[in-house]
Design a protein around this nucleic acid. Structure first.
Lengths: 227, 227
DNA sequence: AAGAGTCTGTTGCATTTGCAACATCTAGGA
DNA sequence: TCCTAGATGTTGCAAATGCAACAGACTCTT
């Protein structure tokens, strides 16, 4: 599936929802995407989009579905860095920092459509004279700052020294994001364990304890904070 | 101490060593610093530059000395995020992401001189028409991408599940940075423990074991990797 | 409806780590 | 020089966590 086939409504949606395209007209986005040599690819659930050490020259934009950003230990221990959902982007850090070998693996968390954007080309004014390159750089700056802040929050979770505190920090973040004490999380138990970097069984045990003690309630992916 | 008092050689040094000012002439930097309303402040060792929740509108540039970026738990548990040394900058993430209350505390690791730059003003072309604002934004984008990558590396350390693996990941990073198996680290034992988010006594114990097993050798801040 | 595979929860046990208390060493000030 | 404060190392013990193995629930395919 190539960009040429994308309907116009897609560009409207991109203009409205993608931070990187903030304050850029749908028509300009269409032109820009031409400049950037974008192409869209469909991936099935669990399919690998990018493997650690793969050559990396495009940033990814999630048109549909969601992806997991992970690293893997030499021992084969998986660590989930983040979940990127619809209209989010990924790998922009490495592309912008000129790191050509990916330090992360990207997998489809569900069936997903990804648009790959050759971002570096953007930094030079292209022949087609896209006027919005400057705006794009500014948007990317904001995007990177925000990502940076997300990483800070992840660090705050991992800097908790006990498993319970990690769980609480994680749930607290979701509580704030949803402005509610009741919410669903996008990770399975196994994935949550890999996100918090703890043993899955230990995670289940601790969640049970917390439920027994009346701090939280949960069922599968749905959590409720009671304390 | 105000910028007006800064000798010209300082601007040469900034042009050469500060990534944010890459490809900008010393004269332009001087002009730009005027635009940004910069001021330099001297801090004694252990003095606090910025406290969590303080209002934050400037980024910090280390002219001399070094600073620690830390967070503190509600339990009073300190966590060291990073060490910023000469010509490094800090707090740029929050300023660029429009986060006006600092989520971190900054303290002087040694006697230090810091230049505070009112970065947001930079994003609007100022009356004095500084031509290099665009270049500055691009540099900031690169800086943020690089910082982002540093946070990734920190996450990689903290995602190690055992204390020994955290130590090894930390030492491995320094080995790469110094291109040598022998190097000094900028943190005391106590600080290293707070950086790795582990108990200081447990850290000492594990370091001893590793020395006994012939994996590493060390004396105070000087380490040597033997494996 | 049956069966296979995956996900979640439970539990015993070994290991790791945090905690607290104390010893030793070093640096800097009185 | 002595004294004190801070930094580092050591160790016993309790608690937390990882690991492994298994049971039950759920999903999907046939």
């Amino acid at each position: 599936m190539h960009t040429a086939t994308l309907p116009n409504t897609v560009y409207d949606a991109l203009a409205k929802n993608v931070q990187l395209f903030k304050d850029i007209e749908p028509g300009e986005i269409r032109k820009m995407i031409g400049c950037l040599g974008a192409k869209s690819v469909y991936y099935k659930k669990n399919e690998i989009l990018l493997l650690t050490h793969d050559r990396l020259e495009s940033i990814g934009l999630v048109l549909e579905g969601s992806v997991l950003v992970t690293t893997e230990d030499f021992m084969g221990m998986r660590s989930i860095l983040s979940v990127v959902s619809q209209y989010g982007i990924f790998a922009e850090t490495f592309v912008c920092a000129n790191i050509s070998k990916s330090p992360v693996t990207i997998t489809a968390a569900e069936n997903s459509t990804i648009m790959w954007l050759k971002f570096p080309g953007m930094l030079k004014t292209c022949e087609k004279s896209c006027d919005f390159h400057t705006k794009l750089i500014e948007n990317m700056m904001n995007q990177l700052a925000e990502r940076n802040y997300q990483l800070h929050q992840k660090l705050e979770i991992l800097s908790q020294r006990s498993l319970r505190d990690r769980i609480l920090a994680y749930l607290h973040n979701h509580k704030l994001q949803n402005s509610s004490t009741s919410f669903s999380i996008p990770l399975s138990r196994n994935e949550l364990a890999d996100y918090l970097n703890v043993d899955r069984a230990a995670l289940s045990r601790e969640l049970s304890k917390m439920k027994d003690q009346g701090m939280i309630d949960y069922n599968m992916n749905r959590f409720k904070i009671l304390y």
